[in-house]
Design a protein around this nucleic acid. Structure first.
Lengths: 196, 196
DNA sequence: TATTTTACTGAGCCCTCACTCAGTTTTTCC
DNA sequence: GGAAAAACTGAGTGAGGGCTCAGTAAAATA
């Protein structure tokens, strides 16, 4: 790993643990084992460092979902959706630091002032929403689901899933014990049923 | 309003808009129209000021739900749950600053280090979860709902509802357009149905 | 090997901010 | 009215943190 990459890695961990404003460049330098100046050599400002982290998160998510879709086949849209939800929770579990950064309000704050950050965020969330919506579109086609607006359904499902994910990243509850209930709830929201 | 109350009010707004670490005492003082020293006269430290805000939020939520329950009657548990959800969204809309503070990660961070903050948070969330669970218990009794674990169901419902509320406080999406879909989703998750 | 480019260093600058304190004004109570 | 208590003031302090810069080391190139 290049020094740039090590710095990026350490910064991701620290920003996720302590937040953007609460993490001093000096601390990143110390934990990485480089001088402060080195960080400013690779990233002109602290904000540029953060933007690089967001970029890295986006690349990772897109790449991982890419691999996932290459390997998997889905019989129905409902099965695809459940699989995507499961994979999202898996990603959150294996890349905790990245999702903690996304879940911090820190980030939204910065996004409100900084166009570059805002673009990164929008791209990340649009990508995930797109994944979910594709599954729902498929489900509507093969009649494994009955939904009115696929966009809104994707939003609601994602909100619920990401909410449980947030419980996990924030360590607020034994979130894993909710996973089964979560899947069941998704199914209930989307599943087509014989008319009453 | 006493000066203490005005300070509390201004601080709530600023913390909600800019976060805890990003808000300087000097700014609170300036906007309130008092000297910095006055703030430290009423609240020994910045943390104590934040604790007072959390306390105030807790009181408000408990009080408002109290009034709500006094005025309303519910035919079924499902109706009660839907009503509680609606009222939660109403509260989020009318007391935006308070919920922004709850939704900021800022707050969780502080709660991890400070026992007083942690207690406040736990009490606030337990209260709301309790409200939701009571409705679900009623629904199970009157057979308007079919749920296995009332606790987990309450958690999932709250996660979803608070997620949509967060979209609103963070101004990320026209959240109001999701309210209908949200209610429908809650109903689908909880509602009892004739066996297939 | 000599030269240029790239990578790295860390002391120091400057600004922000939580908090203090000695003093002043206002309120309370006899 | 006067003394004591409570409320308020704002300049000052010290610590922390983003960023600069003049210089050194390492790598690439000629």
């Amino acid at each position: 790993m290049s020094k740039r990459e090590i710095i990026l890695h350490t910064a991701t961990r620290l920003f996720s643990e302590k937040g953007y404003h609460n993490t001093a460049i000096a601390e990143i330098a110390k934990l990485t084992g480089v001088a402060e100046g080195t960080i400013f050599y690779h990233f002109k400002t602290k904000e540029e460092l953060f933007a690089a982290i967001l970029d890295n998160i986006k690349l990772t998510i897109v790449e991982k979902y890419g691999e996932f879709f290459k390997e998997k086949q889905f019989a129905t849209g409902l099965e695809m959706l459940e699989s995507c939800v499961y994979f999202y929770l898996f990603l959150v579990g294996t890349r905790e630091e990245m999702f903690l950064i996304l879940h911090r309000y820190d980030a939204y704050e910065l996004a409100q002032e900084n166009q570059v950050f805002r673009t990164h965020f929008t791209e990340i969330y649009n990508y995930i929403l797109d994944v979910f919506e594709k599954a729902i579109l498929k489900g509507r086609d093969d009649e494994s689901m009955s939904v009115e607006s696929t966009g809104k359904a994707a939003f609601i499902i994602f909100t619920m899933v990401d909410g449980v994910a947030r419980l996990r990243t924030f360590n607020l509850y034994d979130a894993a014990s909710l996973y089964e209930q979560l899947q069941k709830s998704c199914r209930r929201i989307l599943q087509s049923r014989p008319p009453a």
